[in-house]
Design a protein around this nucleic acid. Structure first.
Length: 366
DNA sequence: GAAACTATGCGTCAAGTACT
DNA sequence: AGTACTTGACGCATAGTTTC
């Protein structure tokens, strides 16, 4: 039985690669292939060296911009939370926009934060931090979207809110933050955790929409109530969603929901319940669906949904793994080809040298 | 131009391996 | 034992090339 190194650096049984065969013959594998394989292994190690990062994909387009920025969130208790945003280049999406059927996501926004604080906020039924993170991220992400996707409004924060505050620093001292979109919508994020969106109407109140997350009223363990209220000219709509499903139509609210879901995902590392944004179902063609945690699943339908979710996650991971595997394989083959070229040149030189030595050593018979 | 062929890439499954 | 990762194999889709 042979032990061979695969091109990803792992030892596998039952395989014999070209590389191994040659190294068995001369024992000296110090050429470019060996060095490159070492680089592969280092690269892989490096890829796996940031286990605390939680990532979420946000729909958008265009090339990645900006550098990783650490944002500080100061809590009322004096604690400071570090939130790091990293914008990356093309990656597949896990969020589908209800406005755009197929979203080409070209960057991932990852936030590294002190998850223990977020977890403690969840456990203490506090949504202040979550809202503050939403507040921090909302303008950044929506502006990213607005610059690339037509129809996504651009957010301009009112100067009175940020004047005198250092960049990238947000505090919880201001009770309400008001933003205005380029389409005229006003977005207010109140201290109580309510996000209000008002459309420009004749009386200034029409189209008022409120997004509230609350854990008051003794919610079930692991379930955060998401409340969405929309007030329009023809009446008021209200949805009280105990962590199961919610349907929203408004584009801005959808964006907010993505951010809220991001916060859930960020806080879901470890033992916390997992919330996931999924593609809209056929019954909810324009909605964003939030799935509750496995711990709160009871009905067969929910169990089936969870199984489907797990399968989709596994397929997605394997999809990415296959891509990466093929990339490594191509790189490995390139290395082998270049090695072949080098060895052919060496062989040619050695043959020529041998011929020369033969000529020198062999007595001339003339 | 249409059909046949080839190359390439992707998604999925399954088996093997490493790790806890 | 269970889980995650890696990779060969298979089928499919698409683009490019060749043949008629």
């Amino acid at each position: 039985m042979y032990l061979a190194r695969s091109y990803c650096g792992r030892v596998q049984k039952g395989q014999m690669t070209m590389d191994t065969m040659e190294s068995q013959q001369d024992g000296s594998v110090t050429d470019s292939v060996a060095e490159n394989e070492s680089a592969h292994m280092q690269n892989q190690t490096g890829q796996n060296s940031i286990p605390t990062l939680t990532q979420v994909s946000v729909a958008g387009s265009g090339t990645g911009r900006g550098s990783p920025a650490v944002t500080l969130v100061q809590l009322p208790s004096g604690q400071t939370v570090h939130v790091q945003g990293i914008i990356q280049t093309p990656q597949p999406s896990v969020i589908q926009s209800p406005q755009i059927q197929t979203v080409q996501v070209r960057r991932i926004i990852m936030y590294q934060t002190d998850l223990s604080i977020i977890l403690s906020c969840f456990k203490s039924h506090s949504n202040i931090l979550i809202i503050s993170v939403v507040k921090l991220c909302f303008r950044k992400i929506l502006n990213e979207l607005s610059s690339d996707v037509p129809g996504v409004p651009k957010i301009e924060e009112e100067k009175s809110e940020e004047e005198g505050t250092p960049p990238n620093i947000a505090t919880m001292a201001v009770p309400t933050s008001i933003y205005q979109t380029s389409t005229g919508q006003y977005i207010a994020i109140a201290q109580g955790g309510t996000i209000q969106i008002s459309n420009p109407g004749s009386d200034g109140v029409q189209g008022l929409q409120a997004l509230t997350m609350t854990n008051s009223g003794a919610p079930p363990p692991g379930a955060t109530i998401v409340q969405y209220a929309a007030q329009s000219a023809d009446g008021t709509q209200q949805f009280f969603v105990p962590g199961s499903q919610v349907v929203v139509q408004d584009q801005v609210v959808n964006c907010l929901y993505k951010l809220v879901a991001f916060c859930f995902i960020a806080a879901a590392t470890g033992d916390m319940p997992t919330y996931q944004i999924r593609a809209p179902t056929t019954a909810l063609p324009q909605g964003v669906v939030m799935a509750a945690s496995p711990g709160s699943l009871h009905s067969p339908q929910q169990l089936a949904e969870e199984a489907t979710r797990k399968r989709e996650l596994r397929l997605m991971k394997n999809r990415e793994a296959a891509k990466e595997c093929r990339r490594r394989k191509k790189e490995y083959v390139k290395c082998l080809e270049s090695r072949v070229a080098v060895l052919e040149v060496q062989n040619k030189k050695l043959i020529e040298e041998l011929e020369t030595l033969k000529d020198i050593c062999s007595p001339k018979t003339d």
